[in-house]
Design a protein around this nucleic acid. Structure first.
Length: 594
RNA sequence: GGAGCCGUGGUGUAGUCUGGUAAACAUGCCGGCCUGUCAAGCCGGAGAUCGCGGGUUCAAUUCCCGUCGGCUCCGCCA
């Protein structure tokens, strides 16, 4: 390599005027005037214009004429100011240009399949197949840089707080519960498999038993479930755990981390402590365990009033143990019948029986329900709903959990539709006191709401035996603008309680011994009280960067079908490889290819 | 596992509903001219069997069925 790059293209300014510099990068574009050729040269710092004059560049001007977009070149020259008319205010470096007197072409380039520039609207298929070109686009490179800064500042902050970064195995054992595992066959132990970790959960608890006291890891996690815009099969967590702490202390440290990241990486001030809501309150007020509190529109309960009205659907809901809850879509009284019908269809798609509605007018309510409510009841509704002229009240009747959930979704839908969220607004809050267990109707058994290692609230422990579904846990979720970005809990550190939980989850003593014997064993040798939390790093970065897809902040993401279009993974392997691993594929008839 | 949307020169789209000369526009690409452009300009040119397979029809980019790929959502994600 002849020419040695010594400057970033985008960093040159008129302060560099007169300097001899060597820049190197990719050709963004060319403007060929015959005897005068302009090239825009781009590297990760930005773009600078290089000018080649036929007279001055005689010895290599024929080379310059061959240069096309995305060629990789180096140019040596002097930084010269542009004349006033020639200044380009759109470029950071627009006040200067480089007058070239030496050129090296490192590599030509085919015409790229899409434009290497920001804001392209190209089939994602192509972007993923040519991911190396997609990442070359400045906005994508900047996202990678952004991600780097968040990782760096995370490490700085946690180090300062006394956390040690410790790596845990990627090849570990499959455990029941939770997501489907990615399995890795063992060559040395025929018929046995490793699993890729869904999270380093058990290892970090063992590190607490080991006396590490404060651990963290930027941990890659794997879950073999279907994908979403904000879900990839392999993803990264900021995972941490500490001993001798409390829920409140852990939450405070995390608030410090979030504040540090926003300040150092985005230059924005956010002010902990964050609001704390109990799960019950979050559900009652917002119909969600991850409420978006950037706008109000809180839910209200009209069950008692509904019980007294003549409308069968409402009456029946309440008498059969359910509820009638509602929300007030402020100033939406102008919605047409069709718009309300569309909302009805929407809530039906979420499982509602129907949608009750009342438009608040100057002299009462416009509603098909009018005949079922006497005026006293309507007045009560008006008060509970804080109904003013021009408002639209919406009601869902049914099972409490379902009604709340549907109203919660409806609330978010209306919030977006009505533009109630002001751009740039940031709302963090904690949700605590989750139920420890939930009933799985399909499997007809109890499952962990968080995970099986989550400690119950001390005061609820007696209920474990008598009323397990009403036991609350010492779990906490961090919610950012209606998205769960982190979750954690104080863990169980006693063998007997852990065994009790496993038993509630339907594991037999033999299962427990086989799958979790190592954990329970560790608890017998002085396990300290401990707890921790994990951030969904990709999701956090996505939100901080204002992106809609997690794929934008992952260098080499998978498609919705879990494929890598760049490498073609997953792919068949040679029969010999399978034989070595003592496995053979058994394809169902409908899954066979070719 | 289910639902919806999308697939037309390299790229982005139009055409498809209402079948009819095998396809239009922009940009990119190639060649020529051009010494102050930065979305350079002017002139010329090449480039698509309309994702793939089957069906209906005298005739299919267009209608039907299937399939593949991408995206979004539900289920799933302790």
């Amino acid at each position: 390599m002849g020419l040695q790059k010594n400057r970033g293209c985008g960093l040159l300014t008129k302060d560099n005027t007169g300097e001899r510099v060597t820049i190197a990068g990719w050709v963004q574009g060319r403007r060929d005037h015959g005897g005068l050729i302009f090239l825009d040269v781009r590297d990760r710092t930005g773009i600078v214009q290089v000018v080649f004059d036929q007279e001055k560049s005689k010895s290599f001007f024929d080379q310059v004429e061959k240069i096309r977009p995305e060629y990789v070149i180096a140019v040596e020259g002097s930084v010269i100011p542009r004349s006033r008319e020639a200044v380009n205010p759109k470029l950071k470096t627009g006040e200067i240009e480089i007058s070239a007197d030496a050129l090296e072409i490192f590599n030509p380039s085919l015409t790229p399949p899409f434009y290497i520039e920001d804001g392209i609207d190209t089939d994602e298929n192509l972007r993923l197949r040519y991911r190396y070109l997609d990442l070359r686009r400045p906005e994508m490179l900047e996202l990678m840089h952004f991600r780097h800064k968040i990782l760096l500042e995370t490490r700085k902050y946690l180090d300062k707080e006394g956390f040690w970064e410790i790596e845990t195995p990627m090849l570990t054992r499959s455990t029941p519960e939770g997501a489907r595992d990615y399995l890795v066959p063992s060559r040395i132990s025929p018929g046995s498999f490793f699993a890729l970790p869904q999270s380093p959960q058990l290892f970090k608890q063992l590190l607490m038993v080991s006396g590490v006291e404060k651990y963290f890891q930027i941990a890659r996690c794997f879950r073999d479930e279907d994908l979403r815009a904000d879900r990839q099969p392999e993803f990264t967590q900021i995972d941490l755990e500490l001993s001798f702490s409390t829920r409140e202390k852990i939450m405070a440290i995390m608030e410090g981390l979030v504040r540090h990241l926003f300040l150092q990486v985005c230059g924005e001030e956010i002010n902990p402590p964050f609001k704390v809501l109990s799960y019950q309150e979050a559900m009652d007020r917002f119909g969600s365990d991850r409420p978006d509190t950037r706008f109000a529109m809180e839910l209200f309960d009209v069950s008692e009033i509904a019980a007294k009205c003549q409308f069968r659907v409402f009456q029946n809901a309440v008498t059969s143990g359910g509820v009638v809850r509602g929300l007030n879509a402020k100033k939406c009284g102008h919605y047409s019948r069709k718009e309300i019908d569309d909302l009805t269809a929407l809530v039906k798609s979420w499982g509602a029986q129907g949608l009750g509605w009342m438009i608040v007018t100057g002299d009462g309510f416009k509603t098909p329900l009018a005949k079922f409510f006497d005026p006293v009841l309507l007045d009560q509704i008006r008060e509970i709903a804080d109904a003013r002229e021009g408002d639209l009240l919406l009601f869902i009747a049914g099972d409490k959990e379902k009604a709340l959930d549907i109203l919660g979704q409806l609330r978010v839908h209306l919030g977006q539709r009505e533009g109630l969220v002001s751009p740039g607004e940031k709302k963090f809050l904690w949700v605590i006191d989750f139920p420890l267990l939930a009933y799985d109707k399909e499997g007809k058994r109890l499952t962990s709401v968080h995970h099986p290692f989550t400690a119950p609230l001390e005061e609820d422990r007696p209920l474990l035996a008598s009323d397990p579904l009403n036991v609350r846990s010492q779990a906490y979720d961090l919610v950012y603008n209606g998205v769960e970005v982190a979750g954690g809990s104080i863990r169980i550190h006693r063998k007997d309680i852990q065994e009790e939980i496993f038993a509630l989850l339907g594991l037999t003593p033999a299962d427990i011994e086989e799958k979790f014997g190592f954990l329970l064993g560790a608890f017998q040798y002085g396990a300290p009280p401990h707890g921790g939390l994990a951030f969904g790093l990709d999701r956090l970065i996505m939100l901080m960067a204002g992106r809609k897809s997690i794929r934008d902040v992952i260098a080499f993401p998978k498609t919705a079908a879990g494929n890598c279009l760049l490498t073609g993974a997953p792919a068949p392997v040679f029969a010999g490889q399978l034989a070595e691993l003592h496995i053979s594929p058994v394809l169902r008839e409908d899954k066979k290819k070719g």
